[in-house]
Simulated assay, not measured.
Amino acid sequence: MADYEFHQLHLPRGTSRSDARRILAEHAEYGLWELDRLTIRRDGSRRVLLRRRIIRQLRLT
């Protein structure tokens, strides 16, 4: 089973779609994050949950 770490973002109400897409693309490209869940709230803000796989090195003894 894979282990993941999570990162939560809050995008305020006035954030345009193109700005939100740019922010998420930067996180994906430079931080290797992938979209886990996107919630659009009643007030128009977005809550974004990103995840990335934790890669552990094996010890060779």
Rank of each mutant, 00 (worst) to 15 (best):
Q8E: 13
Y30R: 12
W33D: 05
R17F: 04
E5G: 06
R52T: 12
Y4D: 07
L58Y: 00
R56I: 04
A2C: 00
T61D: 13
L38M: 15
L49D: 03
T15F: 01
D36H: 15
R13T: 09
R22G: 02
L35I: 15
G31V: 00
E5T: 12
Q8F: 08
H10C: 02
R41E: 15
R52P: 07
R21F: 06
R51G: 08
G31R: 07
Q57D: 12
H27V: 05
G14M: 08
R21G: 03
R53H: 05
R52A: 05
L11G: 04
L35A: 03
A25G: 14
R41F: 11
A20N: 03
L32Q: 13
H10D: 06
L11T: 08
R51S: 12
G31H: 08
R53C: 03
L58S: 01
A28S: 13
S18R: 13
S45F: 01
R56Y: 10
L9F: 04
H10I: 10
D3N: 06
H10S: 09
H27P: 09
R53A: 11
V48I: 15
Y30V: 13
E34Q: 14
L60W: 04
A28T: 04
T39Y: 05
L49K: 08
W33C: 10
R46E: 01
R56P: 01
V48E: 06
E5H: 03
G31L: 05
L49S: 09
H10R: 12
Q8G: 04
L58K: 00
R52G: 07
Y30L: 14
L58Q: 00
R59M: 00
R17M: 05
E5Y: 04
